[in-house]
Simulated assay, not measured.
Amino acid sequence: MRFDEVVLAIMKAVDGQRTVSSPYHLIKGKKSGQTIQDIGYFGLHPYFAVFPKLDKQDYLSSIERLEARGLLIPDENTVQLHRSAIELEIPPTPLNGWKYRGNESRFFARISLVVQTMSNFMQGHKRFDPVVTDETVQAWAKAYLNRIDFRSAAVQEAFSNQVETSLAAAKISETHKEILVERLSGFGVGGHTWDQLAMEHGVLPIDAKIAAVETLHAWLDMLESMEYPLLSEMLEGIIQQSALTESAKRTQNLSERGFSLQQIAELRQLKSSTIEDHFVEMAMNDPAFSSAPFMDDQLFASIHQISKEMKTMRLRDIKERLPEASYFQIRLALAMRGAGK
């Protein structure tokens, strides 16, 4: 999947209902109420936080390319796609940004340092400049290496075999795998830069980056589903155990203890609107969530009916047709519909 296709996939989902900058915030993983609810409304879970460090200029360059191809109609206010873009099929992707939320980079940093260390020690070379300078990653890797007795030839062989076997089994193209592997460093071998990979594979640097993220997500999925003892420990803290953000989880805990929305806001010393965002997030992710404390069944049904009739999830449009509903109630109902309720 090319980066432009990631942008286009998001834009096809929100066509005419969000600003041109909304995909940028989603790709970076912005944890605003708007971004989180859009994930549920439009089914954009795969693309959340796939590039936490995305440069704004790289995003704007993608917009320019889409406009130049006639797929995106220039509009300062909302996303407007040409008919050809709507009809264009987006290739399938193993991306699962909502699950990993950028943590795949931490996994790759760990495995990069472990591979580099093992490679050097296997050649009797005990002094080298670590490819990862993050002290937290270095400390984690040091503890891990000592724990598995990495100096053992048997462990080194087993680790190498598990890396090769699991990556080979990952459901992604060989080209994708090559891009990721070529980023690794070892004894006498330096990992390729993004520019080098782009030139070698005939793509843009940002396309090489998205290929690496896709490969990591496919690989992590394989590691989670099958038994690779030496690699399992490397998943510590990588996979998101809850669908909720940390702050929303704290709100959920208080709600389950019987506190009202306003009481939670006071206890947590947060704005009511922030707690409302948390409830929308809960509605989006929890199949057992009930809207009963916030609206009656008739209002809930009316919001859904108007949204369906108008073919929109724009809050303002629904509010104009149903003034008795608050924006929060509309967001909550739409979030529950987005969750398949």
Rank of each mutant, 00 (worst) to 15 (best):
S119T: 06
S307M: 05
I63A: 02
L180Y: 02
Q162P: 08
D221Y: 09
V131A: 11
N103C: 12
S242D: 11
Q240Y: 13
L197T: 03
S61F: 05
N96L: 08
S112I: 00
F3C: 01
T251L: 09
A208S: 13
V181W: 01
S326K: 02
K28V: 01
V114N: 09
V203G: 02
E87Q: 15
Y41E: 14
W194Q: 12
Q298D: 11
M234R: 08
R268C: 06
G70A: 13
F150H: 07
S62R: 00
D207H: 06
E281I: 06
Q298V: 10
L267K: 13
Y327G: 01
I318P: 07
P74Y: 03
S302A: 14
L167H: 02
A139Q: 13
L267E: 13
Y228M: 08
K341Y: 14
F328D: 09
H192I: 02
V14M: 11
K177G: 06
A248E: 09
F150L: 07
A139P: 00
R151Q: 13
R2N: 12
L235Q: 07
Q156S: 14
S173T: 12
Q156Y: 08
Q37L: 11
F259K: 11
P229S: 06
A283E: 06
Q252M: 14
N161Y: 04
L145V: 03
V7P: 00
A339E: 14
K126W: 05
R2D: 12
G191F: 06
Q123H: 10
M282F: 07
A212C: 04
S260Y: 07
V131F: 10
T312I: 07
L270R: 09
A265S: 12
Y41V: 11
G16C: 06
H25M: 09
R18S: 07
E214L: 01
Q305C: 04
F3G: 01
S272L: 14
L244H: 11
Q57L: 09
A333F: 13
I264H: 06
E89Q: 15
A339L: 13
L235R: 05
A325S: 13
M118I: 12
N77C: 04
G186P: 00
L230H: 05
G43D: 13
S232T: 15
K56S: 08
Y144R: 13
L81M: 11
Y24G: 01
S62I: 03
V181I: 12
E164I: 10
K209H: 12
E64K: 07
E320F: 05
E309Q: 14
P92R: 12
R250S: 13
P74S: 05
G237I: 10
F107I: 05
R268E: 05
Q262I: 13
K31H: 08
K171C: 03
Q263A: 14
T93Y: 02
R2T: 08
H45M: 12
K171G: 00
G124Y: 02
T19S: 15
E64I: 00
R110Y: 10
I10G: 03
Q241T: 14
S326W: 00
T312A: 04
D15N: 15
P229M: 01
R101M: 05
S185T: 04
Q80N: 10
K142A: 14
L220T: 08
A248M: 11
T133C: 00
Y228R: 02
Q156D: 08
Q37F: 06
E135V: 09
F159D: 02
G43H: 11
S160W: 10
K56D: 12
E67D: 05
R2W: 01
